[in-house]
Simulated scan of single mutants.
Amino acid sequence: MSKSSRKSIVASFGLLSAELENKLADEPKPAAPPPSPRVGAGVVGAAHRAIDDIRAERDRLKAIVEAGGGAVLDLDTALIDPSPYPDRLADDDASDFETFKRSIEAEGQKVPIQVRRHPSSAGRYQIVYGHRRWRAARELGKPVRALEVEISDLDLVVAQGIENANRQDLTWIERTLFASRMDDAGIKARNIYAALSIADAELARMRGVYRAIPADVIEAIGRAPKIGRPRWIELAKAITSDPESLVVVRRVLTDAVGGTSVSDQRFQRAFEAVKPSRQPQEDSNELSDLAGRKLGAWKISPKELRISADGPLGVEFMKFVGKELPALMERFSRERES
């Protein structure tokens, strides 16, 4: 597919999203037609559309397949490799996927995944999107229904981003890590904005995090569903302020991963290990007279001096200090002038 004949992936790449799969779960699957030439990525249409538009797109895709314009294949899952750009982190709770897998087992796979020919391994495929459907079919020992498309490396990663934009279950750090992988793949910023449905300010925040926190550290922490953008930014700032902190974070995470902690807890442990320490800003001392009798105590901070009395003698001392304050102010002024 030449650059001159291919429109922008953001404008022309269509998707069969998980939202579509859920919306149309009760509809019968179309029968697979005889094999025919591969369908180009652009035939599926534009991204980011309402449910009615997605339903219409599904019907159009079905018509294309039935007319011989594309082939829905039943592929051995062992012949398929995941995308070279992972978009999910390890999940602490496997129950959601188990529910999804059981629905595939009971009702069948309603929507095909998208695959492309593996660019370097003959006879194999790579997933464009549909990783959970592929994983479910693999664990169930069933072939997976797939639509083969022609797509470049750069368009593949943008296509995944478009698909991810329609998913509500990805955490902020998962989207951030995927933005990092698009960045590494040489995807232009304007396409990252479109693929993830974000503004340039949000991409700047994401870059601030993934450039400070290495991918292996993010992956060791995991999805951290309860940890939002502000906390990740705080962790990135803490690491940036002290490069040695990465050694501490990795050590903490090595200990945490070996235990039973979940990703939110792993984040908290890493953050607690490197967050800036807040040293006490106050200095305090006891007050005693020449005979060693306690009068009270005093505390001083950058903006306050506090004196507390202890017993009748301490109260007398407080009164004495109050009477001496005017003389102290005069002395202070004289010393500043000189």
Score class of each variant (00 low, 15 high):
P28C: 03
I113A: 07
P276A: 02
P28W: 02
P37E: 09
G314F: 06
Q126R: 14
F178Y: 15
Q160L: 13
I104P: 00
A297S: 15
R205A: 05
R117P: 02
E316S: 11
L89G: 05
P214F: 06
D93G: 02
V248P: 00
V157P: 08
A204P: 00
L16G: 08
I187T: 12
F13C: 15
A194H: 04
D96W: 10
E330G: 09
S261T: 06
G258C: 01
D74M: 14
S284Y: 10
R60E: 13
M206P: 00
P225Y: 10
A212H: 00
D155V: 11
D91C: 03
V43E: 13
P84S: 11
S2T: 09
K62L: 03
M206T: 00
L246S: 06
P112L: 11
R132M: 13
R334Q: 12
F271H: 09
K319M: 11
A94G: 01
D200W: 07
Y85Q: 06
G108C: 03
A11W: 01
K62E: 02
P34Q: 08
S333W: 08
L196T: 05
G314K: 03
S277R: 12
D87A: 08
D59T: 01
R135D: 11
K62G: 01
F13T: 07
P119M: 04
S36E: 10
A270W: 08
R124D: 04
G296V: 05
G292H: 10
A204M: 03
V43H: 07
E286F: 14
T254S: 12
W134N: 01
K110M: 03
S36L: 04
Q114W: 08
V111W: 06
P230H: 02
V65E: 05
T171H: 04
P243T: 10
K142F: 14
R231F: 01
A327W: 11
V158G: 00
E27C: 04
S284P: 07
A32Q: 09
G222H: 10
G141I: 09
S333E: 15
A236I: 01
P326I: 12
R331P: 02
I54H: 14
S338K: 15
S261D: 11
T260H: 12
E21R: 12
D26G: 03
V44S: 02
H48V: 03
S263H: 01
L290N: 09
A122M: 04
D242F: 00
I162S: 06
V257F: 02
P143H: 07
L328V: 14
A137L: 09
A47W: 05
L177T: 06
G186P: 14
K101H: 04
R38G: 02
R138E: 15
A165R: 09
D169P: 03
V158Y: 01
A201G: 11
K188N: 08
Q126C: 10
M182P: 04
D255S: 13
A327P: 04
A137K: 11
T77C: 13
P82T: 07
R250E: 12
A256W: 07
E107R: 08
I198L: 15
I51Y: 03
E57G: 06
N285L: 12
P30T: 07
S4L: 14
K101I: 05
R223Y: 00
L235K: 00
G292V: 08
A327E: 14
R124Q: 13
A220R: 14
Y125L: 12
I64M: 11
V158H: 00
P225N: 08
K294S: 15
D169R: 12
S308T: 15
D216G: 02
E304W: 02
A25I: 13
